[in-house]
Design a protein around this nucleic acid. Structure first.
Lengths: 189, 189
DNA sequence: GATGAAGCGGAGAGACTCTCCGCTTGAGGT
DNA sequence: ACCTCAAGCGGAGAGTCTCTCCGCTTCATC
């Protein structure tokens, strides 16, 4: 998923470090904001600054990688949920996850997105990955006949985003109710 | 408009410098992005770093001030246009200005907004200032009976923003056409 | 003009990003 | 098992950026 060059795969320790750094960075960004120093992240990950900067030539590349990883996790969850639950429930759970994600990471996501936007290749990648996941889960639920046939994957994405934005100014109770309303609307009547 | 303390007005030189810095910063941000060093801006404005940092205790405050000024200019233009032109034309011109602004400053505005968002007091101020301006110009045009009665100031803001987003991926020609379509839709039929 | 307060400039402290290079370690060959 | 060497590592330090401090200058007032 994040291999650099398929011709010669990363050495085991290099890959370990790469993943370690992304994980630590994600934690650090969430806890302390995107302004946390890169050297700090290196230290917390138990690697030298050189190692960090070899994997991520600039600070922005690191931010990009975290953003990408975050989105990738959200998309992956769609596929995982499909294996664990019946499609209808999977879709409902996924939408709820999406909303929680938007609410919890709102500020972070905005800043990450702003940092990433310039070299928007990554941004495009994220968008298509999310859409593919959303399409898949929606289609599965539709094949079972549990949700309306005229809903698209993009709709779900937008609903998740919209609900999240609305919910970030509302209480947890309200959020649940809003989500319930939308879920009800999605089901075949 | 940007006075700090009405009790004791700024000294003339201080105010001059304040305005100078904001103007230079706006130019610098537009030309070179928001990452341009604060010291550079001080130099270009012909003041010492100390002066800059007294007026704007942190770099973010400077960004905030520029964002605020930018929005303020857009809002002010609504009132200015109302004095120069008949209300219908004023509204049309303003909407076009808005679109151009969104297109030209898209990247910048996003980053500014992301930087500002945390201490969102400024953000709120900007929003209400824009809405007031929009409401005023819409109401004037409606009183003349030249645009639909069911349109609100917020609608115009949204249209401006939406058109701008759509237009940033389209050609100048397309933008003009899109704008013409919307303007046509706004007129009483 | 004289005087005090408000404001100015820029050297420099501290922090951050990124580079460089000698040392270490994993992986393939024998 | 051991050898070899490219791949990878760490961290000192160069260069840059933000922000502070304080002696000097300028404005406003009398």
């Amino acid at each position: 998923m994040v291999t650099a060059d398929p011709a010669r795969p990363m050495r085991a320790d290099a890959r370990r470090n790469y993943e370690r750094i992304v994980a630590v960075a994600k934690e650090a960004f969430t806890a302390d904001g995107v302004d946390v120093p890169a050297d700090d992240i290196a230290k917390r990950a138990g690697v030298g600054a050189g190692t960090l900067y070899r994997h991520f030539p600039t600070r922005d590349k690191l931010i990009e990688a975290v953003y990408r990883d975050e989105i990738d996790g959200l998309a992956q969850q769609a596929y995982d949920l499909l294996e664990e639950l019946p499609p209808g429930e999977a879709l409902e759970t996924w939408l709820a996850t999406h909303v929680v994600y938007v609410v919890e990471k709102h500020g972070l996501a905005m800043t990450l997105k702003a940092s990433v936007d310039a070299g928007s290749e990554v941004f495009g990648w994220c968008q298509s990955r999310l859409r593919a996941a959303s399409d898949t889960i929606v289609k599965a639920a539709q094949d079972e006949g549990v949700i309306r046939a005229d809903v698209t994957g993009t709709d779900i994405l937008r609903l998740g985003h919209g609900l999240g934005s609305a919910a970030s100014k509302a209480s947890g109770e309200d959020t649940k109710r809003l989500l319930a309303i939308v879920l009800d609307g999605l089901r075949v009547s």
